[in-house]
């Protein structure tokens, strides 16, 4: 980091500290910046960070492109021990060699919520947050995931990635294992003032249960009943999901399966993905994924098989380089075959 930038950050932190004298935490830990963990300001329980993702896509029979996928800024602030604000402001698909968006149009609030810690095990969340269906959607940030492409069953064509509403989460412990249960209600049609798109939910309600099967394995169940903002008078959809994660010594197996049903022409679809990770060296990992989707996917009949084989190099904790080849059958429309690569980093 350049000396000028470092002194700028130090000056900002010092100014901030002088403006903000008191907090609930009587800490004496000075503000600091850590690569991949943002600027932390313990006295105010404040953190500023984010991530960037740049990708190069070379799909078969389509134009290739170099793209600034995401430039994302997180802000966390806890003004009281029971209150936590979180916001993620993102510039999404802003610059590309194929076409570029205006900054104003690309800018959006990806997440904006407040958590009220009711008890040590119960939290109430208000605002805009990620839809808790499966695992991929809630940890979709490019530096966290293993591939540049996203599995079809987690795609926003299937369910909106965001909820605008309220969620209650409660944790229990059974035999030294955590059981987390969330229920939520969505009113995006009225509350989503931060996104001009119409691909979100109109209303919805749902829940999720996550259980630690062991130190290394977790299983989750998700459900949501919703209708889409684009067709609020169409039949409501019911979506069921089950997911599994096992991690040990750098190896990982993740799987998610969904089933969505609506009584009208929206039809039904079901699908899954199974992904395995294996360390090849200390920082280099091999990835293999199989995906399947069948049914009426946004009014199109699909019977799609997809395979992904790739590598991810993580030379440092916040930084990852990814390269993969995607192939399949009847996949051209929703997940075209081709070569995909990206560089992403938490800062």
């Amino acid at each position: 980091m350049s000396r000028r930038l470092q002194s700028g950050i130090t000056l900002l932190l010092a100014l901030g500290q002088s403006m903000w004298c008191c907090s609930w935490a009587d800490t004496s830990i000075p503000p600091s910046y850590h690569w991949g963990r943002g600027i932390s300001w313990p006295d105010a329980d404040f953190n500023l960070g984010g991530y960037i993702n740049v990708s190069y896509q070379y799909p078969e029979k389509k134009a290739n492109q170099l793209k600034l996928d995401e430039l994302s800024l997180f802000l966390t602030w806890s003004p009281h021990q029971r209150v936590r604000f979180f916001s993620e402001v993102e510039v999404d698909d802003w610059q590309s060699t194929r076409n570029s968006d205006s900054f104003a149009h690309a800018l959006r609030a990806e997440r904006l919520y407040v958590d009220l810690l009711a008890t040590e095990a119960a939290t109430v969340r208000f605002g805009k947050f990620l839809t808790p269906i499966g695992r991929w959607n809630v940890i979709h940030a490019a530096p966290l995931i293993w591939t540049s492409t996203r599995p079809l069953v987690t795609d926003e064509m299937l369910f909106s990635p965001h909820i605008n509403g309220v969620m209650l989460t409660q944790r229990w412990q059974f035999n030294e294992r955590n059981l987390d249960m969330s229920v939520y209600s969505d009113h995006s049609g009225r509350l989503n003032v931060f996104d001009s798109g119409t691909s979100g939910f109109d209303t919805g309600f749902g829940g999720r249960v996550n259980f630690d099967l062991s130190e290394t394995a977790q299983i989750g169940l998700s459900f949501i009943d919703f209708n889409n903002e684009i067709a609020p008078k169409a039949d409501r959809n019911d979506l069921l999901g089950v997911d599994f994660l096992w991690k040990k010594d750098g190896y990982e197996v993740a799987a998610e399966a969904i089933y969505r049903h609506a009584g009208d022409s929206q039809g039904q679809e079901k699908g899954l993905f199974v992904q395995g990770i294996a360390p090849l060296t200390e920082h280099l990992f091999g990835i293999a994924r199989y995906e399947y989707l069948i049914g009426t996917h946004h009014f199109i009949d699909l019977d799609t098989h997809v395979g992904v084989a790739g590598l991810a190099w993580r030379p440092y904790v916040p930084l990852v380089f990814k390269a993969e080849y995607r192939f399949g059958s009847q996949n051209g429309l929703v997940a075209p075959s081709g070569f995909f690569t990206s560089i992403s980093m938490f800062f």
């Binding site: 991949g36 963990r37 943002g38 313990p42 953190n47 991530y51 979180f86 940890i139 904790v317 938490f346």
Partner: peptide
């Protein structure tokens, strides 16, 4: 560290 990466994305910092 991968766990703390995920928590960072959720607005949770590791212990001081």
């Amino acid at each position: 560290e991968p766990y703390w990466n995920e928590q960072y994305f959720q607005g949770i910092a590791p212990p001081y």
